[in-house]
Nucleic acid binder design. Structure first.
Lengths: 345, 345
DNA sequence: GGCCAGCGGGAAAACCTTTTCCGAATGAAA
DNA sequence: TTTCATTCGGAAAAGGTTTTCCCGCTGGCC
């Protein structure tokens, strides 16, 4: 199919530098009007068999493909969705992006991506810029202020959030039920007999961190003490914070994410602290690597591509309905592996 | 800056559903012609101070942003670059994408992304589709046939490859010097005293695998035997292939990639085989996780974002020069960590 | 004081596609 | 044979921006 087009172009001797052929060229070549070419290609209205054949032949011969800018201009829509992520190096966001991209592709949409380099200040502008080109924008774990997000929602017609949910933020969102995840972990550790555990905090500005805090408050009780240590969201942060965690004399470490947990695990290994013998360890997210390290990491599994697919569905829904602050919640599952055990007594 | 625009829009009471304001609206608001508005915004020609002030005020009040489709239509260029990756879940490709995106952003370009789901058959069509929208397309580790690539180069004006280089493929490329990397690993293992090592093969269709094969042929010699075992490119493949590798009675395993090596490491751990005590292990790429596992992985470090940046530079260069089959080679560095040691004798 | 140069600004064309509107032609029915 | 209905196809407008072309005005120089 496509090879006809390519070969046709090659046969004409037109190099890739030659200006792309337009619908008018095709029309002239097929001795019909541009309107007829458009009709054949879009199937809007029936065209006589003879003309259709001529048009298809001309299209193949010239390697014609409609100019999307012109289509976009006319339709007022670009068939493109934008995704803003804090950091493409982070597999979590890459997976969400993949989920969006695959869903978009299936609907014949393109995906524009912007990487803000973890700078919260860049998120607003990136989204605004993307919204010029895209019909809608997905914000991945945005750290921007409530105020900025509200402004943005006002400027961008079809805005969706992943893992960010605010009261009074009228933005459709798909969120992981962090509270349920953290609760499962707490319950698991308590049932194992832990009485004093340490939690390594993520970035304060992250909405997901605040959600975790709510769950921690609910879970802490007499006989189950939770000590907090500031940390961050990367494995390097975890590696650095491990010593402070040890100093708390807790028997288990709950890390903000798998990433952080892997950093902790590496540091504990360096220090000769056995996991789970001397110290239990849990993560969050279930990234691919977590089942490949030793011991395999007890964590909470989130289907990240699914988050992306849901975000796409919110986008698709926003075409029909008005802009409703619809929320999809994805509940993660506790995966008990080898990094947790009862405390040494 | 941006908040003026947003607030202006909010102040007018125009919801996000209202049609976007056009240059004509701004012109009417500022009591000038559309041409003047364009000139103020682009700085093409000087405009009197008074008019300029009026135009800027109107732009802010209406929250006007030029329609990129119209600009693209007129300029014949979209200020967009496309990137085709086999799998966004693979951090290697995500990093390359990040490199391209960041460089593009700096030049005020947008980035379109397509994920082919590791299906070689989808690459050609994805690239062709992206080329409709983008001014150029970067192909990441394409597995398509030589023939398909040649066809594609003919149809897409500004095509660049990452980690794919063919004689007679007139496509600018940035490639890792796999042969140098594999040679370093072989030399390292031989110096440690290994005499019989196993290589876990990657996908046959991958160009990088063929480059590795050339280096292996050059390195194999009497007294340094290289046994090959088919494997694949994922950690799951490595996990599966570990048993076959053990059966070869080699003293070291060279994996196709870090990913594969991590799978091997996990399997060896399950089997109670000590690394590097009983078996040495090497990877390729130096992904983030490789310095976090225990033992830390001896590997070859490739700066993946740099690959992306170089791809961008090739794109930028292709604007000036004609389409030359320029090639940038990035030489990776051997990183000796804890997973290699002398063989047990 | 008159003429020329230069500058600022507006009108309009061009970019490419889709879609509406209308005309023409063909077929059937009266 | 005439008329109406139906169908197919072409002409043209619209969509938003940039840029060229041209006009008018002002300032300087002779």
């Amino acid at each position: 199919m496509w090879c006809n087009a390519a070969m046709g172009r090659a046969r004409t001797g037109a190099g890739p530098r030659s200006p792309r052929s337009t619908i008018t060229d095709v029309a002239r070549e097929a001795a019909v009007s541009p309107a007829t070419v458009s009709r054949v290609l879009s199937g809007t209205k029936p065209v006589s068999a003879d003309r259709e054949r001529r048009v298809r032949a001309a299209v193949a011969r010239l390697g014609y493909r409609p100019n999307p800018a012109a289509q976009g201009l006319l339709r007022g829509a670009t068939h493109t969705i934008g995704v803003v992520v804090p950091d493409l190096s982070n597999p979590y966001f890459a997976e969400v992006l993949k989920g969006v991209t695959n869903a978009a592709e299936a609907a014949d949409f393109r995906t524009l991506v912007a990487d803000t380099g973890e700078k919260a200040g860049a998120e607003h502008d990136a989204a605004l810029e993307l919204s010029r080109w895209a019909d809608g924008v997905v914000l991945c774990s945005p750290r921007m202020s409530h105020w900025e997000l509200t402004m943005l929602a006002d400027a961008v017609a079809r805005l969706m959030c992943v893992n960010r949910l605010g009261r009074g933020e009228p933005v459709p969102a798909v969120v992981v039920d962090f509270e349920s995840g953290v609760s499962s972990i707490c319950r698991h550790l308590r049932e194992l007999g832990h009485r004093r555990v340490v939690y390594l905090r993520g970035p304060n500005r992250a909405w997901s961190e605040r959600a975790r805090q709510r769950a921690l408050r609910a879970a802490s009780a007499p006989g189950f003490e939770i000590v907090q240590v500031p940390c961050g969201s990367s494995s390097v942060d975890g590696h650095r914070a491990a010593d402070a965690a040890l100093a708390t004399r807790a028997t288990a470490v709950m890390a903000f994410s798998d990433y952080v947990a892997l950093g902790v695990l590496a540091r504990l290994d360096e220090l000769g602290v056995s996991v789970p013998g001397d110290m239990s360890l849990t993560g969050f997210d279930d990234i691919a690597m977590s089942s490949l390290v030793s011991p395999r990491l007890t964590t909470v599994a989130v289907d990240k591509q699914r988050l992306g697919r849901h975000a796409w569905q919110l986008f698709a829904a926003s075409a029909a309905d008005g802009p409703g602050g619809q929320v999809v919640t994805v509940t993660p599952d506790l995966i008990i592996r080898g990094s947790t055990a009862g405390p040494v007594t």
